[in-house]
Design a protein around this nucleic acid. Sequence first.
RNA 1: GGCGCAGUAGCCAAGUGGUAAGGCAAUGGUCUGCAACACCAGUAUCCACCGGUUCAAAUCCGGUCUGCGCCU
Length: 327
Amino acid sequence: MTLGGSDKDIPLVILTGPTAVGKTSLSLRLARAIDGEIISADSMQIYQKMQIGTARILPEEMEGIPHHLVAELDPREEFNVVEFQRRAREAIHQIVGRGHIPIIAGGTGFYIRALVYDTDFSEHDDQESYREELKNLLDREGKEYLHQELQRLDPEYAATVHCNNTKRVIRALEYYHETGEKLSAHNAAQAERVSPYRFACFVLDMDRSALYDRIDRRVDQMMEEGLEEEVRSLYEEGLGRSLVSMQGIGYKEFFDYFEGSCSLEETVEQIKKDTRHFAKRQLTWFRREKEVIRLNKEDYPDEEAILRKMLEILEEKGITAIDDRQV
RNA sequence: GGCGCAGUAGCCAAGUGGUAAGGCAAUGGUCUGCAACACCAGUAUCCACCGGUUCAAAUCCGGUCUGCGCCU
């Protein structure tokens, strides 16, 4: 990176919102308007061979705008926040180096926050063995036991995580084991972080029931486009349901169907329901993000008007093309 | 027209005299290396309607309405 100043000079535009609200289409307009490149903040679109179910943009639809973190990983590989941070940071630096503006577009709120506030996840060597040990402990002694253990080591964190949430309890225990530090203390420190970027984060939203209708229709459309075949070929490749990629909505629901324990119709309904639930959770997440600009589709006549509003805000924040500033 | 069965939250549903289980949905929330994950919390002053019996009725009795089945 050869930028003259500090990272504070790096502009970053984020476009997020619930699934199916119309981020992709708006992101293209935005990229064209500000000479940007798009970085996907989506935990599933990163996987190859998962085109239909993730509603990923097709290369021919990109209109020549570079897209990053899209179809880069084999579905067998694991993707997580830290990996996202690594790849996204790298992409940002490349984009800025070309004199373009990085646009983060996607709906995984956790990833976006981790990137924007540069959250430190204290890397460690993958010690799967200890996690296995904890899982065994869970099976043998029960979730109450694990939670009590956490209560002893990190009471503050234990107080915030429900005993049924074994996934989080295990992570906290693992964290303590590996770093000797309490996760609660680490989290508290991370919460103080100020973003190193000059950013604007837009949350696109629309009327809830209209959104749910769109979701239902989009799932039907995916089925028409051949979602079943897409997932079947992954299934026949031997991908298991425990893979991160196979936990994606529109994929995980098919396993029961392929194994004969539910009908295709039930599968489709389940996908719709899971997607609606997901959208709702996303909205809950964005609602509590402080430095966010909400754009409700109902408040604008069309996409063009939303774009104009966004450009206006970017102008105010001084987030514009950076080529002349940098040389 | 007659007989029988049924009518409990948006849906499914338990409860058959003692003060409305549960599930799904909807809604709100948590979230710091699995996040399209995992997890949590509410939600019927009221049981189709009207009247009666009783200290007490969603629960018993009568009537009305609606649905389903059978008979004519």
